[in-house]
Design a protein around this nucleic acid. Structure first.
Length: 278
DNA sequence: ATGGCGTTATTTTAACGA
């Protein structure tokens, strides 16, 4: 299976480019983030015409996650169990009104449990969205850890925009991000906790850093200056990681007019697992 | 000192992103 994850920054704006890449990169399953649309606005027929089934969750112009697969989609799950919501009136209201956002969708594709995840941005270290981000990550870790405890041999891929640069090698300038989100110690600890739970970054062994990035800001000529961040990851369970044969980031997709500010991350898994019998 | 760019919508500016 050839699996990829991509924050597309609007699927309606990017659909031609995404479908062209799926064909060029020979992708079987794509986890998509930031579709920025409601379910009825998602160009599902375009994917179907290209041979992909799609599942999506999106409530408005914010967030939105999807999975496209040409190897089947089963047991679709919107949000992960225990996924926290954000309460925008937490400061002013005595009542709690947390809203669970469209940031997680899971489905089983050819025996792999695939999740498309859009971790909250955090905005600023003193913003309520930062505490929300950490809470969201802790809940995800607890949930995913449970999946592995229940079945240590499960093939699980946690794909998405994690909005964390785990090490200084993953940002163009650690100094630039001092005091900002994405590189703070609590965020890095939250990412480390996912690794401690048994998941591992599939791409790193195949694309050693520093200087390997998946996101470049639209402003300040960040891309041509090679000033980016590595914040998009496929985290694989042990059983899936062991059959990885290749992985990388396709920075060609960040080039030219009409690019997303993120490039897709892909991983190749040996077909051998399909025939593994316990 | 600030913003730069790109996307969306009950759009003509505000929210959000990282």
């Amino acid at each position: 299976m050839r699996l990829a994850t991509w924050n597309v920054n609007s699927i309606r704006t990017r659909v031609d480019r995404v479908l062209a890449w799926l064909d060029r990169a020979d992708i079987d399953v794509l986890a998509i983030q930031e579709t920025k649309c409601k379910d009825e606005q998602f160009p599902a027929e375009r994917f179907e015409a290209a041979g992909y089934e799609v599942v999506h969750t999106g409530f408005n112009q914010w967030n939105g996650v999807a999975i496209a697969s040409r190897v089947g989609i089963e047991d679709v799950q919107i949000a992960f169990p225990g996924q926290p919501g954000f309460d925008k009136d937490a400061d002013t209201s005595l009542l709690s009104h947390p809203v669970v956002e469209a940031r997680a969708i899971g489905a089983t594709c050819d025996g792999v449990r695939v999740w498309s995840l859009y971790v909250p941005n955090g905005r600023a270290l003193d913003d309520p969205h930062y505490a929300y981000k950490l809470e969201w990550l802790a809940a995800l870790r607890d949930c995913a850890g449970t999946w592995l405890e229940q079945d240590p041999r499960a093939r699980i891929a946690l794909c998405g925009d994690w909005n964390i640069a785990p090490t200084d090698d993953d940002v163009w300038s650690p100094e630039f991000f001092a005091g900002k989100t994405h590189t703070s110690e609590p965020e890095r600890e939250a990412f480390e906790a996912m690794l401690s739970a048994g998941f591992s970054d599939v791409m790193r062994p195949f694309a050693p850093g520093p200087g390997v990035y998946t996101y470049w800001d639209y402003t300040q000529l960040r891309f041509p200056r090679k000033e980016g961040m590595r914040i998009d990851f496929i985290l694989a369970s042990p059983a899936l990681r062991t059959v990885a044969t290749d992985a990388g980031v396709d920075r060609e997709e960040r080039k030219g007019k009409g690019a997303s500010d993120h490039a897709p991350v892909f991983a190749q898994f040996s077909a051998a697992f399909s025939s593994v019998v316990s």
